Simulated scan of single mutants.
Amino acid sequence: MTARMRFVGVTTGSSSIMRLFPVWSELLGLDAELVGLDIPLDAPAASYRAAMREMQEDPDCVGALVTTHKIALLDATRDMFDDLDPFAAAVGEVSSIAFGPAGTRGAAKDPVTAGLALEEFLDPGHFAAGGHVLCLGAGGAGTALGWYLAQRTDRTGPLTFVDPAPERLEHLRATLTARWPDLDLRTRLLDETDVSDLLRSLPPASLVVNATGLGKDRPGSPVPDGATFPRGAVVWELNYRGSLEFLHQARAQQAGQGLTVVDGWRYFIHGWTQVISEVFGVDMPPETVQTLAQAARTSP
């Protein structure tokens, strides 16, 4: 029997994983296929419940990776899960769904994914020099990033999150301060924030992240044209495909401002390999991840 893994997103057919998964499946010794399940942005709860029923009633479906809909899906279907990992329960999102004899298990892998990706380009003592963090976007990816950063031994300066939705900012604050009451966390509504001024106020070597989805699911950037990134900043675009306006803005300033500019490719690799490990119960040591990453780079 060929196992079926689902990919719950918005435009799954254009993702690189659709051509990579068969290669990875063979390398890992899995008899498995990946099938996309597209749900529009801002879909009603009924759409998420129908998607969950479709997966649960498919005897060949062993699990799923969830991208854009991590929070909305769990909000709509929490009663359809038998178990949630601690982070999924704390933040109310799932990126991994596994079906097995014990029922439906949801997990939120983003803090692990964010950490694995960040540690590839941030030194362990990076923030000791006084860098701050500006995360544009306070959804699931932003909350997971904050969760990871709060645990670093080189505690950052202030962590500032900007988002257009007050409920997302409130949820992020409640989640992080419940665990780290002394965290220097600042939340700002986009409509009340001049992002250009905020960037100018950051010290050198700060971390600036696009966690909005702009430049992937929708065109645009959370940074206005003409804004300047702080000197020596690390600029991280969580997306690896799409119009990627934020990434292009950073690259245009890379030489002049001495920026480290990173796209979302390795974040994508770690995100998928962590969920595949969870869904199929396979080990994913660094050497295996590297083998899969190399295959991804060389696959046509």
Rank of each mutant, 00 (worst) to 15 (best):
D83F: 12
A107M: 11
L122T: 03
G146N: 12
I71D: 08
A64I: 08
P86D: 15
L176Q: 10
K109Q: 15
L172V: 14
L65F: 11
F127T: 03
P164E: 03
L74I: 02
A98L: 08
F121R: 09
L185K: 02
E192H: 13
L149R: 11
A165H: 11
Q151I: 02
A64N: 09
E167L: 11
G142E: 03
L189C: 13
T113P: 02
H126C: 07
D154G: 01
P101K: 05
L122M: 05
L172M: 15
D154F: 03
L65R: 03
A178K: 13
T113E: 07
H132V: 03
T67K: 10
A141S: 13
A165D: 15
H132G: 11
A88S: 12
E167Q: 14
L190I: 04
R173Y: 09
V91I: 14
A72I: 00
G125H: 09
L145D: 07
R78E: 02
A98F: 05
S95D: 05
C135Y: 09
L172A: 07
S95P: 02
T67I: 02
I97V: 15
F127Y: 10
K70G: 00
F127K: 06
F121A: 11
H171P: 00
L169T: 00
G115D: 05
A114K: 11
A90Q: 14
T160H: 03
V162F: 10
G92M: 11
A128C: 08
A64P: 07
G140E: 00
G130A: 05
A117I: 05
T67F: 12
A128K: 06
G63E: 01
G103Q: 05
G142N: 07
K109W: 06
D184S: 12
L74G: 06
A128D: 14
T153A: 15
L136D: 10
G137Q: 09
L189Y: 05
A90M: 11
G139H: 06
G146S: 14
T187F: 02
G131E: 01
E192P: 03
E119R: 15
A76I: 07
L134M: 13
W147S: 15
V112P: 04
G106I: 04
T104C: 14
G100I: 08
F99K: 05
D79G: 02
K70D: 01
A76V: 04
F161I: 02
E93P: 06
F87W: 15
L176W: 03
F127A: 11
D83V: 04
T177E: 14
A165W: 07
P124A: 13
